[in-house]
């Protein structure tokens, strides 16, 4: 009898541990989703500075109009978020738009800086909308980058691999801990879009969506 009780207790214990393990494993996945607010009020914070650069059409510098579009709640009419973009007109088939931007671990005025060792990832996607053909094309973008920390020694652009993370150094107040990178993103339509004539581009728009994500190490 005593042996049976012990066996029941042992099974009960194993079952309990199993349930706890499964619950913990499940919960741990949610824990790994992290805090996306970017606020880190205790101690130092993760920070990078994103700055827009020039917009080129081929080799020609063109004017991009900065737009800020406020998105409001339909019911409460409260501002939900502000979408920002750069718009340019008069693009023609065959044009390659190149957008330059910068990412650094301190801002220009040194009033904000990165206080945590981290890394960041740059990604982009593009959407070509051709209303005449009633077609939308998801396009791959090409991103190249270079280190421009030392303005007297700027190298050539190199391709940025899709899975490449770049170190986001902790700024310790010294110039040696400052890092600044220049990126250019562009999309080549050849082999990605099946256009057959000039008319296909009537009313067409090309949107390049750009993301810079950083996380602590």
């Amino acid at each position: 009898m005593k042996t049976r009780k012990k066996l029941i207790l042992a099974l009960l214990y194993i079952s309990l541990v199993g349930v706890v393990y499964l619950t913990s494993s499940t919960l741990s996945k949610y824990i790994s989703s992290s805090n996306t607010t970017g606020d880190f009020t205790i101690g130092e914070k993760l920070y990078f500075d994103y700055t827009r650069g020039d917009l080129f059409r081929g080799d020609q510098l063109i004017v991009g109009v900065p737009i800020e579009e406020n998105i409001y709640d339909e019911n409460t009419h409260e501002l939900i978020k502000t979408k920002k973009r750069i718009e340019t007109m008069n693009v023609a088939p065959g044009d390659i738009l190149k957008f330059h931007f910068y990412v650094s671990n301190v801002n220009e005025e040194l009033t904000e800086y990165n206080g945590i060792e981290g890394e960041f990832h740059v990604s982009a996607s593009a959407l070509l909308s051709m209303p005449v053909n009633q077609a939308d094309y998801q396009l791959d973008c090409t991103i190249t980058y270079r280190d421009v920390t030392d303005s007297s020694n700027i190298g050539a652009f190199t391709d940025l691999a899709k899975d490449k993370n770049i170190d986001l150094l902790k700024y310790d107040g010294t110039s040696a801990s400052v890092r600044k990178y220049e990126f250019q993103v562009y999309v080549v339509l050849d082999d990605q879009v099946q256009a057959t004539s000039n008319d296909d581009y009537v009313g067409a728009t090309l949107s390049i969506y750009l993301f810079v994500d950083a996380a602590n190490k």
């Binding site: 805090n35 970017g38 994103y50 007109m89 993301f211």
Partner: peptide
């Protein structure tokens, strides 16, 4: 699972180009 709390910061931008007629 290598889980640890990560602090994430994201910047998002868009370049929108309008095609013109020839």
């Amino acid at each position: 699972t290598g889980t640890k709390t990560r602090y994430i910061k994201r910047e998002q931008d868009e370049v929108r180009a309008y095609y013109t007629g020839l």
